[in-house]
Amino acid sequence: MRYVRDGTVANDGGPVELTFADGAAIYFDAGPDGESLKRVDHPWLDPFTEPPSAENCSFVEKSGKWAVFEIADEPLLNRATQTEVLGTEELVTDEQKVFGLRIRTGDFVIEVFVDSDELYMTVHSS
């Protein structure tokens, strides 16, 4: 997901929706405390339903909105989500607060984690 405002697409952190080859979708975001991971086991639901109200149009024009983007331009992530999930591991603080998740798929590791009220994602070969 990316934040879009005035036609400019930001790509520096924010919510993540992963859809795997079997159709399963997981939505991640920073939790309300800004430190914990929020995980929802279904696709992101856009709060701006179609057709948009005049109020929503005005808000989006002034402030922008989150939008789902395909990952075709991110080949490593694309390959990582097209293989079987082999396992997951919660990332926890010393206080046992879950701040992230490590997902192992085939030859890849996807990590989603919260840092300073923002959600980030990394993908690398295992």
Rank of each mutant, 00 (worst) to 15 (best):
K62F: 01
G64M: 05
T83A: 06
V9C: 00
S53G: 02
L45R: 11
T93E: 01
D6E: 09
T88E: 15
D115S: 15
A54H: 01
N78S: 10
F48H: 10
R79Y: 06
V85P: 03
D107P: 06
G7N: 10
T93M: 03
G100Q: 04
L77V: 07
K65W: 09
A67W: 00
A24R: 12
P75G: 03
E17F: 15
R5E: 08
L76Q: 03
V114W: 09
I110C: 02
P15W: 08
P75C: 01
E111I: 12
V68E: 11
G34H: 07
L45F: 13
P75L: 03
G23H: 11
G31N: 11
K38M: 14
D12N: 12
G13R: 09
E84F: 02
F69M: 03
D46C: 14
A80D: 04
E111K: 10
E118Q: 15
T93H: 06
L86C: 05
D29C: 12
D12P: 04
P47A: 09
T49Y: 07
F113W: 09
V85F: 01
H42Y: 08
T8Q: 15
E84G: 03
G23I: 08
P43K: 14
P43N: 02
K65N: 03
F59M: 06
E35R: 06
Y120W: 12
A10P: 07
K62A: 05
G13A: 08
W66I: 07
D33R: 05
